[in-house]
Computed example of a mutant assay.
Amino acid sequence: MTLISGSILSYSTSLPVIFLFMSASMLPLITKAFWMQEPQFNALGLLLVIAYLILSALIPRQNRLLVENIILRIENEHQPLTDPLTELGNRRRLYLLVETLLPSSLRRKDPFSVVMLDIDNFKLYNDKFGHSAGDDLLVTISEILRECSRDQDLVVRYGGEEFLLVLPSTGLDAAVILVERIRSAVKEKTPVTFSAGIATHREDLSFDQLVEKA
């Protein structure tokens, strides 16, 4: 009885490992086989697909979800946390911060605010001066945002010409003061203006809803 239960345990725990190996090694082979556009390679690709589906069907649902989570975590660990042009945080870094900031803010009843900045008429600027000049402008704006914000603030390039600031322990009035400081610096160092929206977190709002309000 012990031998049988041990065999079952070994079977159930080894299959996810096999499936993880299959996901990492077979899927690229399947893609390549079909891409070759040769009958023998297409047949090989079909056999690999069948083997993959059979193995995935044998794995208990909870183990399959575990493997999928492992694969997702591996993929996430290889994704960058910064925007390559501006070297600001990107959306992935933003949501990693939110995972800890939101519960902490609710627990301590400590407000935080978000500021959404959007460069006005950026497309026209690009069309007039070229994309290289547009990139230089984005870098300059990024440097201004870093200079004006505090160490605990997170500055993120949210979209093409959109920037998001997450301001821990900051109410609406303090966020407005920061935006005006940024506006003065942008006016002094660049030929452009920007539009800004501010929202302060409430318990009934998710983070995405807060960003929409900003």
Rank of each mutant, 00 (worst) to 15 (best):
I4T: 08
S5Q: 15
G6P: 05
S7M: 08
Y11G: 04
T13A: 12
L20Y: 06
M22F: 09
A24Y: 09
L27Y: 09
K32L: 13
A33H: 05
W35P: 03
Q37P: 02
E38C: 08
P39F: 15
N42Q: 12
G45R: 00
L46G: 12
L48V: 07
L48E: 03
Y52R: 00
L53G: 03
A57T: 09
A57C: 13
P60R: 10
Q62V: 10
Q62R: 13
Q62G: 02
N63M: 13
E68W: 11
I71K: 02
R73F: 04
H78K: 11
Q79I: 07
L81P: 00
P84C: 11
T86N: 07
N90A: 07
L94A: 06
L97K: 08
V98Y: 04
V98C: 08
T100P: 00
T100Q: 15
L101D: 10
L102G: 03
S105Y: 11
L106Q: 15
D110I: 09
D110H: 13
F112P: 02
S113A: 14
V114S: 02
N121P: 01
F122N: 05
Y125Q: 04
K128S: 14
K128Y: 10
G130C: 13
A133G: 03
D136C: 09
D136M: 08
E147G: 01
C148A: 08
C148W: 00
S149M: 01
D151L: 10
R157K: 10
R157Q: 06
Y158P: 02
G159H: 04
G159D: 09
G159P: 05
E162V: 06
L164E: 03
L165N: 00
L165E: 01
V166T: 01
L167D: 00
L167Q: 05
P168D: 02
P168F: 07
S169C: 09
V176G: 02
I177L: 08
R181I: 00
R183I: 03
R183W: 06
S184P: 01
K187C: 07
T190Q: 02
V192S: 03
S195C: 12
A196W: 12
I198N: 00
R202T: 14
E203W: 11
E203D: 13
L205F: 15
L205Q: 15
F207Q: 02
L210T: 12
